[in-house]
């Protein structure tokens, strides 16, 4: 019995990191109304930035947040401003321009292959960091310390984004744009700037997720692909655009992945995840916390 509790706890912790990655995707989707297929690649870029920051300076992995967050924000901001904005402008009348999905897919391939070109295919990890392999013993149970840090980081990030959206002038403008972009324009809000900011935020959050992974996870050029699909499933599960939904959706997947193998072959857990995904699409396409109304 104990091992199920232990697996559940570790599943929730790992799942919260999935949720953190999905949080970035959900922020971008909520505002731009398009799925960002490059999201996993942005996470990969974040991981490399964190990896090099830690390796070159020897700083604590979590201290690299002060580098990763601004770098990733600017990266996402410019990516949207230079590559995606022109499409939104030329397809003004289209509510969810499908072309953007194709462009983000292109960005995914380019980023992954650039990483392969520059850093090579090898798996990298930071051997001597203070979090690596650390376990917390609670009675007879073992809880992974780096994942615990990730868990609290995910909660803190979600809280910061929530407060930003609720309480700040810019946050209100982001919400207004996500609800009705023409009406937001009529309030004097520059919708393209809001798109840039939302994309920057989503990318920065992917970077935060990257930082939480670096202490215990391998960094390699296609690492994003593993998270990409999970993020999409989580976002559908939790409800598109929902912050709490992303975290909870992530935890559900994390628990399935870690408790499942006690009862079946590990690969079967994927089938369960996908079955859940399909079930949600059939029965409650708006997800756990998604709004039925359009937003």
């Amino acid at each position: 019995m104990l091992f199920i509790i232990e697996d559940t706890i570790n599943g929730i912790l790992m799942g919260s990191i999935y949720g953190l990655a999905a949080l970035g995707l959900t922020v971008i989707f909520g505002v731009l109304k398009v799925i960002n297929f490059a999201h996993g690649s942005l996470l990969m870029v974040g991981m490399y930035v964190a990896y090099w920051a830690v390796l070159l300076t020897g700083m604590h992995p979590y201290l690299s947040l002060v580098v990763v967050v601004p770098v990733m924000f600017v990266f996402g901001y410019l990516l949207q401003d230079i590559l995606i904005k022109p499409i939104f402008k030329s397809e003004k009348e289209v509510r969810e321009p499908i072309t953007v999905i194709i462009v983000t897919t292109g960005v995914w391939y380019i980023l992954d292959n650039l990483a392969l070109l520059i850093f090579g295919p090898q798996y990298r990890n930071i051997q001597d960091n203070p979090l690596r392999g650390k376990m917390l013993e609670i009675g007879d149970m073992m809880v992974s310390v780096p994942k615990l840090w990730g868990f609290f980081t995910a909660l803190a990030t979600a809280l910061v984004i929530y407060l930003f959206l609720r309480k700040t002038r810019m946050g209100r403008a982001v919400r207004a744009t996500s609800l009705d972009r023409d009406a937001a324009s009529l309030q004097g809000i520059n919708q393209y700037r809001i798109y840039n900011i939302a994309f920057g935020m989503g990318t920065a959050v992917a970077g935060v997720a990257g930082v939480t992974l670096v202490p215990f996870y391998n960094v390699f050029p296609t690492v994003g692909v593993l998270f990409d699909i999970k993020c999409f499933i989580i976002v559908v599960l939790g409800g598109l655009g929902s912050i709490g939904g992303a975290l909870l959706g992530g935890m559900i997947i994390g628990v399935i992945e870690s408790v499942g193998p006690q009862f079946m072959t590990a690969t079967w857990t994927e089938a369960i995840v996908y079955a859940l995904f399909l079930a949600f699409l059939f029965l409650k396409p708006s997800g756990l916390f998604g709004v039925k109304y359009d937003w």
Partner: peptide
Amino acid sequence: IVQVPEGRRLFSLMSVEDNLIVGAYN
């Protein structure tokens, strides 16, 4: 030059107060 659009176009999932505050964005 400020327009109150046809059909009101309020930010449906925002509070009355937030709707008003967004109006003062400039």
